[in-house]
Amino acid sequence: MTFRHRIYLAAVAALAAAPPCAAQTAYPHEVVTLVTHSSPGGGSDVFLRDLARYLGPVMGVKLVVENVRGGSGARAMARLANAPADGRIVYAVTPTYIYTSLLSHPVNNYKDLEPLVNVFFDEEIVYTRADGPLHTLADVIAAARSRRGRWGASTPASLERQALEQLKLAAGVQAAIVSHDGGGDLMLNVLNGTLEIGVGEAQEIRGQLAAGRLRVLAVFSAERVADLPDVPTVQESGYDLVLTKFRGLAGPKGLPDEIILAWELAIQQVLADPDYRNVYEAAMLSPAFMSHADYGPFIDDFASRTEAYLRRTGVLQ
């Protein structure tokens, strides 16, 4: 008990702006389930298990990661929508849950869940072979003007695919956009020269990046990435495209205010933890805390823009 108390005192010290009453309320549950639609070992799963290790002590609860696979989030959303809204169960969301909601018409969709807080943005980058001829995004576009470009995205209906389709349209070039089963086989096809460029999460390719086999041409974020200060953004290169691959948390509809507040405080605090910072910086995740008040509108906006895009391309009718 004293330990938990100390943690919450620390939380107050760290967050002077936070309402003081939050410090006295311990989280009302001892065990909290974190649901992910990712398989064990997958991107979201690793992120969540890392987070759980550092967040558990901060909140004074035991965090259990549960993989509810199937239907790219459809089953996880159903699980959450039918769970009691008391803070015992939370879902780790990524853009996938929006895409699945829109494309697969599941019984429960993103509208049945309450966005809680955002934690990170993933850096989406454009990369090529290090021994290849391309050095800038302009080279890529120029190459695609003279002959058909060969570009790759991770999965069929994904943020990355959407970004490449939009880039192709904006530049007015011809390019084959090949989708894959994930970031891994995409990277292989860039490494072996089948594809000229790939778009993916920075963390998936960092091993090859460190070994100097891949070169980053541009980042899709709004500003340059701290780890890659020399790499321009896509926007700087002249195309108004920004990708925000969010990683956040959502719960069942109607979460009580004190639960929401507890998560807001705990996430801010864990993001400031220097040990955890080492972990997430190595994974090239950018902390991007968003409070509950901001996160709902953010998700709605993301969803409506995605839906507009999917209707425009005829994926949705």
Binding site: P40, G41, R49, G184, D185, L191, A282
Partner: peptide
């Protein structure tokens, strides 16, 4: 490459990543 050829390999990869070991 850090590329899991199967679900089982993906978990092994997860095990590596959690310990800060980056395949490559």
């Amino acid at each position: 490459f850090g590329i899991p050829g199967s679900n089982s390999a993906a978990i092994l990869l997860g095990g590596l990543l959690v310990h800060g070991l980056i395949p490559g």
